Simulated scan of single mutants.
Amino acid sequence: MNALVIDKTFTKEDYKTNRLALAEYDNCTFVNCNFTEAYLSDVNFIECTFTECNFTNAKTKNTSFNTVTFNNCKLLGVQFTSCNPFLLSFTFNDCNLQLASFYQLIIKKMLFKNCNLEQADFSKATLTESVFDNCNLKNTAFSNTILLKTDFTTAYNFSIDPEDNAIKGAKFSKDGLFGLLTKYKISIS
Rank of each mutant, 00 (worst) to 15 (best):
F45M: 07
A120S: 14
L75W: 04
N72L: 07
A125F: 06
T29Y: 14
I186P: 04
K61H: 10
D175P: 00
V5L: 11
N32K: 15
G77H: 02
G179Y: 10
A23I: 06
G179R: 03
A120V: 06
F90K: 01
K109W: 05
V5T: 12
L127M: 10
F70W: 03
N114S: 13
I160C: 07
T145V: 03
Y184W: 14
N34P: 11
K171N: 13
E13Q: 15
K108R: 12
T128I: 09
L177C: 12
Q104S: 15
F142H: 00
T182Y: 07
M110T: 15
F152K: 01
N157V: 03
S82R: 07
T69D: 09
T51W: 00
K109P: 02
M1F: 12
N57L: 13
D175S: 14
Y156H: 12
F30W: 12
N157W: 07
N114E: 08
I107A: 05
L22A: 07
L117E: 00
L76E: 15
I6F: 11
L97G: 01
S173N: 14
F10H: 12
K61F: 11
N2V: 06
K124W: 08
N116P: 05
N18H: 15
T128C: 05
F55L: 03
I46W: 03
T17W: 04
L97H: 03
A155R: 00
F158Y: 15
N136F: 04
V78T: 01
T81N: 08
K61R: 11
L40E: 09
F55G: 01
K171Q: 15
Q98V: 07
N44Y: 12
M1V: 07
S159V: 00
R19G: 12
A170K: 02
N54K: 09
I46G: 00
T51E: 13
C83K: 06
T36L: 13
T60A: 09
D161Q: 12
N134F: 08
T56W: 02
A141F: 03
N32H: 13
A125N: 07
A141L: 08
F178Q: 14
L22Q: 14
N27S: 14
P85G: 03
E37M: 11
I167G: 05
N18K: 13
C48S: 07
L22S: 08
Q98L: 05
K185I: 00
N71R: 12
T69H: 07
A120I: 06
E13H: 11
T150V: 08
